[in-house]
Structures are given as structure tokens and as C-alpha cells.
Design a protein around this nucleic acid. Structure first.
Lengths: 225, 225
DNA sequence: TCGACTATTGACTTGTGGTCAATAGGGTCC
DNA sequence: GGACCCTATTGACCACAAGTCAATAGTCGA
């Protein structure tokens, strides 16, 4: 005869007295609280330095309830990450439309830099801290990169010319890497003013575009000859 | 009276018959085998998709033996990562000394690109896949960045002028980010020849240096006036 | 042949992510 | 105001993987 675990155990359980639940919260409120908590916690400690029990204890709820709201520890983590990512992208997306393309780039960079100074820990742990091996996490970070690239180039006079040009795509990824590398370094060692950094990033973008344009022109000229 | 676990259990253990150990290997050979295995495995699957039991099974040894050679799963992982990192840096470091600075940059980039094409999976999982939150892992990756930067600039005519200049340090980090971003993108979507990519990376470096130089010059001129 | 040294084993402990039946609080309907 | 239902909440439990450790089997030199 097989063990038949469940029911027997259940019968035993019934006999035990129960402690009263603590606080009863509305679904959305609880979910928001947990997300907030996760964001705070994961910004400070690494993913697997934080246990679900820790989070539950901090939130003054049982572990089971946490799993009622988020099916997985990773889901909770990703949800928090996604919020951070979206806030950043959205911040960069909201720049006045009535600017010259160059000014739009500068404004976007300004918004970007302002946002990351305000949320340094979250930003760095988003771009560098994540579990890169997890496809979903990688997707979020990757999404930030491509969406930011799109924003920065929105309405640029270069964009229509260069979009689709293979070299351009790679160069753009490169520039995004530049921005990431420089700004993360700048967070750790703020060796210049924010304005100076912004200016540098903008000028590098223009320089990169001109390099790519030049190479493309040279290549087509050579082909033409 | 306290439980007194150990000895009692030990006495019981003695009675059990033992299977014979499989193969007996010299210390260094075993260690090398395990490192090799770890590198292969972690290049293909994520850190926590690979269990110690998996590795032990694959190596046809017991888990305990694995822990005899590497005190921790993470240590094993980091050891493999470190090898990959060192190989890459070393590859870039061995370029002929009798070249012009510009040609040295190109040669370094060539070596870099050749190496990462040959070891794509390892390279990408080194730079993007690691457990970024682990300080030791982060250290390895960070080390690659700074060491590569040093190599690329070795003997450059710009270096003596710009070293220590705050903007320059940040710009260099940025360029390293550019190289990383562009080359990882290129691994996934090889939209151009290796030569073309190398040329682009080199020209971007020169452009970046000129931008930084220009800004620095402008700043000092302004100050001087 | 014996003893020492060490590579090797595998049962065990511990910690943590994840499951699930049971329950308590609170509203609604008669 | 009691019966009933809905759902937020609990806590005991499981599974599995990292890490520990006393015991053991090869091997080599005296």
C-alpha cells in the first residue's frame, strides 16, 4: 500500500490550533507593497542573498502569501526590475518635441543622467547586477538598451539615412554601450559635472555617426569605382 | 543530554559495504579536468541550471571529491571564468612592439575580435551571463575591461597626454563599453566583416580621443581667458 | 609486508524555493 | 442576526541542491 501522504497529514493538521492572521489587505495594495519592498531589498542586496523568508518576514506576512501574489521568486525580482527599467525609459521618452534633433539628443541624455543619479543603486543593479543568464532578466536589460537607442535617435536627421544600414545598427549598439560604460563609471567616480558628461556623450554620438557615415560613403565610392 | 549526532552515526556507517572508487588521478590532472569540464558546461548552461551533482556525474566522480578540489561551486565557476578572461587579455597583449600606435590599436582589436569569434559562447557568457551581483565575478569582468583598456592604449601617443585627465578616464570606460556592445551585437548578428568592424572600433576610438581632447582644450582655453 | 599519505566515497545536514489544504475575516442576503 | 460565500492568509510540508565529514581504498616507499 502506497504511503498516501496528503489526507492523513491534513487530518492531523486539523487538530492544531491556529494563530490569527495579522493584517488583511486589498489585493492591489498588497501587491504594490511587495513590489516596493522587493525593489528596495534587491537594490541593496544580491538576488540570492535575499531569501523569500527574509522578504516575507520583512513584509510581516507568511511565505505562502508571497507566493500567492508572485508565482516565483524570480517573477517578483523581474517585476521589480521591469518597473525600474520602464521608469528610466519613460523618463527619457518625455522630451519636448519642438527641439532640433541635436537638442533632442542632449535633452534625452540630460533626462537619462538625471534619472540615474537619483536612482544610482537601482540603475547599476539593473544594468550590471542582474542574473544575466536568465533569459527574462536579459530581455529586460536588452529592452532598456534598444528602447533607449530608439529614444535617443527619435527624429534625428541621421536616423532616416542610416536606419537599416548594417554598420549603423552595430555602431548604435556600440554607442549605447559607451553611454552605459561611461555613466556607470561616472556613478562610481563622478570626475566631471553632469553637463560635461552629457556633452561628451552627445559629441561622441555625433562623432560615431560621422565615422559610420564616412565608412559607408567610402565603401560605396569604392564599389562605384 | 544532548543528541550527540556524529559518533553514533559513524559507528553505523562502518557496517555498510563500500563500492570501489573508479579512477585515481593525480591532483593536477584531476583539477585540470574539472576546470575544463566546468568551462564547457557553464558556457552552455546558466550558473544555477548546472548542479554540482550534474558536474560530478559528468566527471564520473563523487560530489565530495569535487569539493575536495574546489571549496565552493562559485569558486569552481570563478576559476573557469578567470581562465577565459586571462586568455582573452593575454591574446590582446601579445602584439608586435614595432608598430605605430595606431597600428597597435588595430592589431589589438584584430586579436580581440579573432579570439571572441573563436570563443563566442564563452565570451558572451563571460561579459553578459555572469552573476553580476557576486563581487568576485564582477571583479573578473571589471578586470577584463580595465586590462583591455590598458592594452589598447599601450604606447599610444595620446596616452601620456591624457592619462589622469578625468574626462579621459571616463571616455575610455565608455569606449570599452562601445567595443563590448558592438562586438556582442556583432556576434549575434554578424552584419559586417571582421575587418570592417575592427576599422570602425579603431576609428571610433580616435574620434573619441579627439572629442575628449577638444573638450579639454576648449575648457582650458575658457579657463585661460 | 607494513605503514603512511592522499585521492576518493557517500551518507548526512542544512538551507531555501515552492506547494497546498485549511482557516479566518468580512461582506451579503434572507 | 445567523447562514453562506469569497478570498486573503496561514503554516506545515516537500523536493532538491549546496556543502560536510568520517571512513576507505589505492599507491608508494621502507
Amino acid at each position: 500500500m502506497p504511503p498516501r501522504r496528503g489526507p492523513i497529514v491534513a487530518a492531523v493538521r486539523k487538530a492544531l490550533p491556529r494563530a490569527k492572521p495579522r493584517v488583511r489587505l486589498d489585493n492591489d495594495a498588497r501587491r504594490a507593497q511587495l513590489l516596493q519592498l522587493a525593489r528596495r531589498t534587491f537594490a541593496g542586496r544580491a538576488y540570492d542573498e535575499v531569501s523569500i523568508d527574509d522578504l516575507a518576514r520583512e513584509a510581516k506576512i507568511s511565505k505562502g502569501l508571497l507566493y500567492h501574489y508572485f508565482p516565483t521568486k524570480r517573477d517578483l525580482y523581474v517585476a521589480g526590475l521591469r518597473e525600474i527599467a520602464d521608469e528610466l525609459v519613460e523618463r527619457v521618452a518625455t522630451i519636448p518635441a519642438a527641439l532640433t534633433p541635436q537638442e533632442r539628443v542632449r535633452a534625452g541624455l540630460e533626462a537619462y543622467l538625471e534619472h540615474i543619479t537619483l536612482h544610482q543603486r537601482a540603475f547599476v543593479s539593473l544594468m550590471r547586477g542582474g542574473i544575466g543568464s536568465d533569459p527574462e532578466v536579459a530581455g529586460v536589460v536588452e529592452g532598456v538598451r534598444t528602447r533607449l537607442a530608439d529614444r535617443f535617435l527619435d527624429g534625428s536627421p541621421f536616423a532616416p539615412v542610416l536606419r537599416g544600414e548594417p554598420r549603423f545598427e552595430t555602431a548604435l549598439r556600440g554607442w549605447i554601450g559607451f553611454v552605459e560604460g561611461a555613466s556607470i563609471d561616472w556613478c562610481a567616480h563622478p570626475r566631471m559635472t553632469r553637463d560635461a558628461l552629457r556633452e561628451m556623450l552627445a559629441q561622441v554620438l555625433f562623432a560615431v555617426l560621422s565615422v559610420v557615415g564616412g565608412i559607408a560613403a567610402a565603401a560605396s565610392a569604392e564599389k562605384g569605382t
